[in-house]
Nucleic acid binder design. Structure first.
Length: 289
DNA sequence: AACCGCTCCAACCGCTTGTGT
DNA sequence: TACACAAGCGGTTGGAGCGGT
């Protein structure tokens, strides 16, 4: 099955655009605009191209306000700062850089900045696919640890534990996160505002926890009264809720992403990421996952 | 000169979101 | 409300160009 193609691929030209095609598209758009329909545009303009291809060519290359050439240090700083805060939302980042497209920014990040900023052995925090998991067991002592690429375990006492993982993010001089976790709930976990890769936690009861245990969850402190709903559709299938390895008598803490509207808040304030707590008796979460 | 590996970026793919009916 | 379709978006790919051997 699968999605039907937007056009008949066998009847459209693909690959690089010729100067003639560029001129045809530019002239047509200058005279007629898009007409609100990119799909129909190539036929009207006399181009043997897919509408999506025309749109991309215009937006990424032909548009008169496109800025070509090397990125400046200021632009680089903007990209780094925004990536740190919101991740790979290239269109949002590009909107802060006049004349730059999301494709430009994305390419620049992937080819230059990523290598420049990320040590080879440092896992890039990826909003969607590098979701990290951690486990808080009900006995033992929590271990300060560096979270590896996929998962790590925090061993905690049932009454209280120190929560002090170290996150491998290239942006932080001091990339530790510390706090107190109290198994009696109402636990505050101070969180580094710029550790966006761990901006959201889900605490899920394991299969052999009691129903009361299953009701534990993390929530952002600014939403104290609302249950913390996960966004499984945005998670990598291997690291998402369904992919969490279930330890015996444990909770899984899953970092994930904020939905778009919450990630930035009304004013794009990354501080929304900063504080999390655990409530002891909120409504169940895991059952709905 | 020829080959190879690497970098860069334009373009594509397909999923998500928005909008109209 | 449900559906269809187009636009938006981010991840990925292909190939041109360049430098090193």
């Amino acid at each position: 099955m699968g999605r039907s193609p937007c056009c008949d691929k066998s009847k459209v030209k693909r690959g690089s655009w010729s100067p003639e095609e560029d001129a045809t598209l530019r002239t047509y758009l200058h005279n007629h605009g898009t007409g609100g329909n990119w799909i129909a545009l190539p036929h009207k303009a006399g181009l043997q191209r897919c509408g999506k291809s025309c749109r991309l060519r215009w937006l990424n290359y032909l548009r008169p306000d496109i800025k070509h050439g090397a990125f400046t240090q200021d632009e680089e700083n903007v990209i780094c700062n925004l990536y740190r805060k919101i991740g790979s939302r290239w269109s949002v980042i590009a909107s802060h850089l006049p004349g730059r497209t999301d494709n430009d920014v994305k390419n620049y990040w992937n080819t230059k900045l990523k290598k420049k900023l990320m040590p080879a052995d440092c896992n890039t925090p990826r909003m969607k696919t590098n979701v990290k998991t951690a486990t808080i067991a009900t006995s033992g002592t929590i271990t300060t640890t560096t979270i590896p690429d996929k998962a790590t375990t925090f061993h905690a006492s049932t009454t209280s534990l120190a929560f002090s993982p170290t996150f491998p993010t290239p942006f932080l001089a001091d990339n530790t996160t510390a706090g107190l976790v109290n198994a009696n709930a109402k636990i505050t976990v101070p969180y580094e505002p710029i550790s966006f890769s761990f901006s959201r936690f889900i605490l899920e009861g394991s299969s052999n926890c009691s129903s009361a245990d299953n009701s534990n969850y993390f929530s952002p402190s600014h939403q104290d009264s609302s249950p913390f709903m996960p966004f499984a559709s945005a998670m990598d299938e291997n690291y998402g809720v369904n992919g969490i390895p279930r330890d015996e008598y444990s909770y899984e803490v899953l970092s994930s992403i904020w939905p778009q509207e919450e990630a930035l808040g009304a004013d794009g304030n990354a501080d929304l990421f900063s504080i999390f707590h655990i409530d002891s008796n909120p409504p169940g979460v895991s059952q709905s996952l």
